[in-house]
Design a protein around this nucleic acid. Structure first.
Lengths: 238, 238
DNA sequence: CGGACGCTTGAGACTGATCAAGCATAGTGG
DNA sequence: CCACTATGCTTGATCAGTCTCAAGCGTCCG
């Protein structure tokens, strides 16, 4: 079981002539710190950072807020790759265009880093490339785990996994009940887990009834029985 | 839609102190050529190259045959990450241990490359690290596509996708009907696609009835209507 | 020739998606 | 300040589809 808002890469990019591709869940890798940026921008809720197909000439480091990466299919359906928080870097693309779209789920602050400058650093700094490779691999791990979770379906398992994945790193030693903030809509989560929003609701309701979770608001729940949730998540695939 | 036996990474490895992690579908990246190896070994059918949890002190370049990467879950179920052919490299791990098991689906010839030598090259050759990053990202792309395919289920879409993914690069300009070799068992494929073996069989039978494919043997089919298969695969997620 | 294994096919139970309709909350305008 | 509207969460009933349990075959091997 991994940690919070992992996942959510954007692969493909033509940095350094042909190099990098992930834009992972770089959880505070400090990669952004080494790169010159154009300063921090304020992004209002539900605004798009970039669309699938746009020319991928920059990557974004999230400073505050939550960003969602998604892909729209021909059928009109949507698939979301992941949700990202402060410290993550999105928009890492290997091709000329972004392969996915990115949208602010909450108001966000992001640092824009031009691809050319990233390119320069990549070509010069070997250890930097290594860190990037490492981060990409980490993303790959998360993606593979998610792949298994999603295919060996079972709504309960998926939702339990989602809750555990997004639980706050058990903040200050206050309540030992983990808190899960989920500012995204139910539809977003459903698209992330590959299920219908109704099924997601029913599953959450069942969790409440069974005393597994406690809902402060629809966008914030507390986990009352983490062990049991872990079992559910494991049964689904592990 | 990607090509043949892609996917199938093995992430995590402690090369170069902390670097690489993927062991992707490195389709003839030539990475193996730059590394000293202990020569080629013959692996009989159904023999295991390494088990999940084994100390990951080597990676393997496949010379001939097909290798399958899989993970066994607590519930006894199995999930296969992918099938790999000549040119692919398996066993790329970032952790001390292999996170997955690898087994020969057919008799294989593999080149064993010690992790320490890989480590040395990685630390010295910057462009090598870049190629690895590139390959890892490619693997990530494939994994993400697979994730969507598997979650937005629909047996027909999954199977159509599988067939197209594994079709031979339309060999010699002989028959323009693509050939798909699938030496692995139905159970293997089902574990790969996240469905029951019975459902896989039924779907294949239906494809035959509808004239989409032509079965020479259970392990070799020809695609009669690639366009339609593509549509099915796309409907499932694209 | 006999047996084992794996592919294939059949019938029934389960369950998640879909179609529809309540409810609550937040935001707007009078 | 309050009513109204809109949006999105929640719940309900129905239906289609896959998994499961079982049983036929065919092939390969001893």
């Amino acid at each position: 079981m991994e940690q919070a808002s992992q996942s959510g890469i954007i692969l493909k990019s033509k940095f350094a002539g042909s190099a990098a591709r992930a834009h992972p869940p770089l959880k505070n890798t400090g990669i952004g710190e080494q790169l010159p940026s154009a300063g921090v921008s304020e992004i209002p809720r539900r605004q798009t950072l970039f669309f699938e197909g746009d020319s991928a000439d920059a990557i974004f480091e999230i400073c505050t807020g939550t960003v969602e990466l998604y892909k729209t299919f021909l059928s009109g359906r949507r698939g979301v790759l992941g949700f990202f928080r402060a410290g993550a870097i999105v928009g890492f693309a290997m091709d000329a265009d972004y392969p996915y779209s990115a949208e602010a789920v909450t108001p966000c602050q992001v640092r824009r880093i031009s691809r050319s400058s990233l390119d320069r650093v990549l070509g010069r700094n070997a250890s930097f490339a290594k860190r990037l490779l490492e981060a990409t691999c980490r993303e790959l791990t998360v993606t593979q785990e998610k792949m298994f979770i999603l295919s060996r379906k079972s709504p309960a398992g998926k939702v339990a996994w989602f809750l555990l994945q997004h639980k706050r790193p058990s903040a200050s030693g206050a309540t030992h009940m983990a808190v899960v903030e989920m500012p995204m809509s139910r539809a977003d989560i459903a698209d992330y887990l590959g299920m219908a929003p109704e099924t997601l609701c029913r599953t959450l309701t069942k969790f409440k009834r069974d005393g597994l979770i406690l809902a402060d608001t629809p966008y914030r729940v507390r986990l009352r029985n983490i062990a049991r949730l872990g079992t559910l998540a494991a049964e689904a695939c592990n």
